[in-house]
Structures are given as structure tokens and as C-alpha cells.
């Protein structure tokens, strides 16, 4: 894929919608196109966060090793979403294992490359942080909702139910 094409297709990803062309070009220079087969392991807990992904199609599952409870699948990330932000925050290590549940098409972004760009170009860095904060806020909100266990059998129905 030509760099020009890559910039264009990156532009279509919801995470980058309405991004300034100049900034998008900066990002493109750190991006590549990847296809991951079903079952592929994208990264693992404790490993260095070298790459993050903008998912185009397919679904990635995040799992955590919960000791005696075994491997727990806590979330899936799908088309249009961002996979991974540990690259952004020191010590840049993944907190989860990530597997492709089905074949995944994604943009892989070189995190070291992007961090350097962010450091040298603060305007670009701010734009990245702004977009990531939004994603983080939404994720946090979703996690809270998940924590509420709204469908759980808080079965206190008593006599009337």
C-alpha cells in the first residue's frame, strides 16, 4: 500500500476522524497495515508496549491471567476502535493478553515512533492525547457500567416478585 493510500484509509478510521492532514501524515509515517489470523496473539501481559492498533475489521479479545480463576476474557475490541494505550504511559508495558478472535484487519502503529513524534511535535502530541483521553473516558465509563453488574441476580425480589 502506498503511503498516500495509507493516509487516506487511516483518515476513515473513526479514531482519526476530522484529523488535520498534516498531523495525519505525521501519524502515517509510524503506521502500517496488518492482517492477523484468527487466534493470533497480538501482545501479552507484562511485555513492552511497542505497537498499538486501530481495528478496521474483526475482533480482538483482552484476557487477564487471574490466578486460580484462570484466564478471564474481560473485553473485546472491534472495528473502529483502538486497541491498547499502555504505550502512552510509562513504563509502557501491556496489562493484558490480546488475541484475535477472528481474522483482524488493523493499522499497527509503532509506539516508539509515535512517542518520539509526540515529544518533538507538541501540537501533534496534544492532538493524540486529546483523542486518547476521549477513548479512555468512554472505556472507564463502560467499565463502571460493567462493574455495576446490571443484569446480575441481585435477587431481592421478596414477596412481591
Amino acid at each position: 500500500m502506498q503511503l498516500q493510500d495509507l493516509t487516506e484509509s487511516l483518515h476513515k478510521h473513526p479514531f482519526l476522524s476530522n484529523m488535520d492532514d498534516e498531523l495525519l501524515k505525521t501519524l502515517t509515517s509510524c503506521a502500517s497495515n496488518v492482517v492477523l489470523p484468527e487466534g493470533a496473539r497480538l501482545f501479552g501481559e507484562g511485555e513492552d508496549a511497542k505497537t498499538f492498533y486501530l481495528i478496521r475489521s474483526g475482533r480482538v479479545a483482552l484476557e487477564i491471567q487471574a490466578g486460580e480463576r484462570g484466564q478471564i476474557r474481560i473485553q473485546t475490541v472491534g472495528p473502529g476502535e483502538v486497541l491498547g494505550w499502555s504505550w502512552l504511559i510509562s513504563p509502557y508495558r501491556w496489562h493484558f493478553d490480546a488475541y484475535a478472535v477472528e481474522q483482524v484487519h488493523a493499522f499497527a502503529i509503532d509506539a516508539t515512533c509515535l512517542r518520539t513524534k509526540c515529544e518533538t511535535d507538541h501540537h501533534f502530541g496534544y492532538e493524540m492525547l486529546r483523542r486518547f483521553s476521549e477513548v479512555l473516558e468512554r472505556r472507564l465509563e463502560a467499565t463502571r457500567l460493567q462493574l455495576l453488574d446490571v443484569y446480575g441476580s441481585a435477587a431481592t425480589g421478596g414477596e412481591n416478585y
Partner: peptide, 17 residues
């Protein structure tokens, strides 16, 4: 989508929103 899955669940995990 489901709030809690395991490795055998191939569908979405996460809240309905």
C-alpha cells in the same frame, strides 16, 4: 455482547452501549 465471557465465547465482551 456479554459483560463476562471466557475463552470459549467468540462474541463481543463489553457493555451494550
Amino acid at each position: 455482547t456479554v459483560d463476562r465471557g471466557d475463552s470459549s465465547w467468540k462474541g463481543h465482551i463489553g457493555v451494550v452501549t
